[in-house]
Design a protein around this nucleic acid. Structure first.
Length: 277
DNA sequence: CTGTAATCCTGCGAGC
DNA sequence: TGCTCGCAGGATTACA
């Protein structure tokens, strides 16, 4: 599923297509997403102009003129794309927002782990996200990140996936960041030196930046808001490359289950303990 | 506080 | 061809 670079791409793609448009009607499919769609939300949204579209972590926020905010999460297989109203409806489309220009914003999600929720007042959405998300990874405060790592014995992989520590990193970019920082994802977070912690923070920012530039990664389902696939999957150093040669030293990439997720790393470049020479 | 597993779903590839 | 199994970009909860 979409992690920060994919969600950012969706938002950037959709902005010119839907900001300034007015929702004329909402259609709901027969299956619920993660959060059941409340009937009254359709009424609230009707005749509302979309004023801004933004991203926070892996969440998408559409702010409407009257004040309500639509909060969307793509889960593992969510797709958010604009189509002409007359275009045929694909399978697994669960929400359709008709716009005032003969177009529709469609939320397709095969596995239905995604969600769409409406918040009536600005405050409640902020509270909802603040309770779940730490700071954005770009321009992250170095002291904060060091302190966050020092404060826990959990392994790096678990910490990077923890949205309260850092918002937006998922399974792919956690592995890619660890590789770039030459750190084993199983390392205890509180065993890192200051230098290592800083290297990891920089690696996260670097990999996310390049991934955004590449419009994210498409492994199977992901597409941007314009329907285009991402390209960063072609630049993976470790993710999904189990058994293949490390791009840096040619050692075979290993896969290990950490924090309940497949974790890929080079056993030579990313050693769990410092090598005794 | 940790880690682990299960839950919500559908689809796809591997192996038999 | 068809079956079963395991696995998949996430978030949340229960439990040892």
């Amino acid at each position: 599923m979409p992690e920060l670079p994919e969600v950012e791409t969706v938002v950037r793609d959709l902005r010119p297509l839907i900001v300034g448009r007015t929702i004329t009607s909402v259609r709901v499919g027969k299956h619920n997403l993660r959060a059941p769609w409340q009937k009254r939300w359709s009424t609230v949204l009707k005749a509302q102009r979309i004023v801004t579209l933004s991203r926070r972590g892996k969440w998408i926020i559409a702010s409407l003129h009257g004040g309500p905010q639509l909060l969307l999460h793509l889960g593992m297989t969510g797709q958010l794309t604009v189509h002409r109203s007359r275009a045929t409806l694909a399978d697994h489309v669960h929400l359709v927002y008709r716009l005032d220009d003969e177009q529709e914003l469609r939320f397709r999600d095969v596995r239905r782990f995604g969600s769409a929720t409406l918040f009536d007042t600005h405050g409640s959405l902020t509270d909802y996200l603040d309770a779940r998300l730490g700071p954005e990874p770009f321009g992250l405060d170095a002291a904060y990140f060091r302190a966050s790592l020092r404060a826990t014995s959990r392994c790096l992989k678990a910490v990077l996936l923890d949205q309260l520590v850092l918002a937006g990193v998922g399974n792919i970019y956690a592995d890619e960041a660890c590789f770039r920082a030459r750190l084993h994802p199983g390392r205890g977070a509180n065993t890192l030196t200051t230098r290592e912690s800083d290297a990891l923070r920089e690696a996260i920012e670097a990999v996310l930046t390049v991934a955004v530039e590449g419009r994210g990664s498409t492994i199977r389902d992901y597409i941007g808001g314009s329907g285009l696939k991402g390209t960063f999957q072609d630049e993976f150093a470790v993710y999904g490359r189990t058994g293949q040669a490390c791009v840096r030293c040619a050692t075979q990439i290993l896969m290990e289950r950490l924090a309940g997720r497949s974790s890929h790393f080079c056993p030579s470049c990313q050693q769990r303990a410092r090598r005794k020479t």
